[in-house]
Computed example of a mutant assay.
Amino acid sequence: MTKLTVKDFASDLDVRWCPGCGDYAVLKALQKTLADGGSTLEDTLVVSGIGCSSRLPYYMATYGFHSIHGRAPTLATGAKLANPDLDVWVVTGDGDGLSIGGNHLLHVLRRNVDLQVVLFNNQIYGLTKGQFSPTSKQGTKSPSSPGGSVETGLNPCVYALGAGGQFVARCIDTQAKVLQPVLEAAQAFKGTGFVEVLQNCVIYNDGIFDGLKDKKTGPDHTLHVEHGKPMVFGVNRDKGLRVAKSGFGLEVVTLGDGLKEEDLLVHDEKNVHLAQALAALGENDGEPVVIGVLYRHGKHEFVEGARHGLPKTPLSRDEKLNRLNATLRTAETWRVE
C-alpha cells in the first residue's frame, strides 16, 4: 500500500481561521505526524467539541466528528469502544475542554482510554469574542471581565496529572521540532495521551506567549525536558533546575562557580511528583515554562478492560440483532397497542 503524504490528510475545504492563528501550525503538525507514522485515512478519527480549535476535523480527510460543547471525550470514548482499531484524536480548547467539558475530560484521563487529547490553550474564548476562559491569567481584561479577571487561571497539565493522566505533555504551537515528536509519542502511548499546546489567538489575546517563542530570549523562559537528560536551559545553556536547598520544591540555578550540569536534576518521566512540580513552574519570575513530555507511565488501559469477555471476532448482523433482542427482553416487557 502506498504511504500517504501530508497533502493526503488534508481535506478539500478552505481552512478558515484568522490569518496568523496558531491553529494552522497545529493542524500541519498533526497531518505530518499521521503521514510520517504511516497512518491511514480510514483508520483515523478526529473528534472535536465547540470553539475555534474544534473546526479542525473539517480540514482532515480522515473520519471526523464535530460534536457539542465539551463532549468530545465522551464521543471519542464510545468510538474507541466500538472499534478499538481506530486511532482516535480529540481536539479541544481551554474553554471547550476545561469549562463545560472539564468533567468529561477528567473521566477520559482517569480511565486511561487509548486515544489522544490535544488541548489548544490560548487563555481566552476566541469563538465567542474574547471572554476570559478557565486558563486566563488573573487580571485578564475582557468583555466578561472589564475590570480584570479575579479568578486564578487553571493549569491544564496540573489538572491532567491530578485527574490521573498517564501521559501529560506541553508544547508551543509554532515549535514543530518539539510539537511533532510529542504528538508521535502520544499516539504511540497505550492510553490517554494528553498534550497541551500553548496557542496564539491573534485577535483577542495576541502575543500572550511571545516571551516563550522569541528566538533570542525564549530559551531563557522555557525548559525542554527529555527523559534521562539534565534540566538545563537558557540562551547560553547556563541555567538549570535542582531540588531546592530546603528539600522541598525546585529552584533555578546558574551554572558556574563550581556548579555543573551533573549537579542538576535529571528528568524522570515516570516520576509523577516531579511532573507535578514541573507542570506548575512558570508562574513566578525567573521560572521557566516546561515543555516536552512531563509524565509518561502506563497503567491498565480502559478499552481492553471494558471489552474483556466480549467476542474478539466481529458479529454478523443477525448475531447483533439476537443479542439486542435478548438484552431488551431480559426483564419483564409489554406491548402497547
Rank of each mutant, 00 (worst) to 15 (best):
A10S: 06
Q276Y: 11
N325I: 15
Y24Q: 10
A185V: 04
A76L: 08
L41P: 10
F302P: 00
Q131V: 06
T327I: 01
S246M: 04
K80A: 07
L259H: 12
R71W: 09
Q131W: 07
K28A: 05
R242I: 11
N112G: 05
A169F: 06
A61D: 02
K190L: 04
L109E: 02
Q180I: 07
E261H: 13
A277T: 13
Y125P: 04
E337L: 15
D23A: 06
A163V: 11
L106A: 15
E304N: 12
V113F: 07
L34T: 01
V47W: 03
V235A: 13
G247P: 06
V150L: 15
V266D: 09
R170A: 07
L274Q: 14
F167R: 12
A79H: 07
N271M: 03
G305D: 03
H69V: 08
A331P: 00
I208T: 03
N200R: 09
D12S: 01
L13S: 02
A25D: 11
Q276P: 06
P143C: 08
C157V: 09
P311S: 04
R111C: 05
N284W: 14
N325T: 14
I50W: 01
E301H: 01
R329E: 12
N155S: 13
H227K: 11
S53M: 00
L281N: 09
V150Q: 13
P57H: 00
V113E: 01
N284P: 10
V293K: 04
N83S: 13
V117L: 06
G218E: 02
H221N: 12
K190C: 10
G93C: 02
D263C: 08
S144A: 06
Q31Y: 06
T222K: 14
V150R: 15
L324I: 10
I50L: 05
H297W: 08
T92I: 09
F302D: 00
C21L: 06
S67G: 15
E261P: 09
P134M: 10
E319G: 12
F194C: 12
H107T: 11
G51V: 03
F209Y: 11
E196S: 06
W89D: 00
A306S: 06
L30C: 08
N103Q: 14
I68Q: 06
Q31R: 14
D263S: 04
G258M: 14
S133A: 09
G147L: 14
E332S: 12
T44I: 01
G101M: 10
G102P: 07
V182K: 10
N236T: 08
S316P: 13
G37M: 11
G126I: 01
T33C: 10
L255V: 13
V272N: 01
S145Q: 00
P311C: 00
V47G: 09
F209S: 09
N83D: 08
G218F: 00
A82T: 13
P219N: 13
F65P: 00
D85C: 10
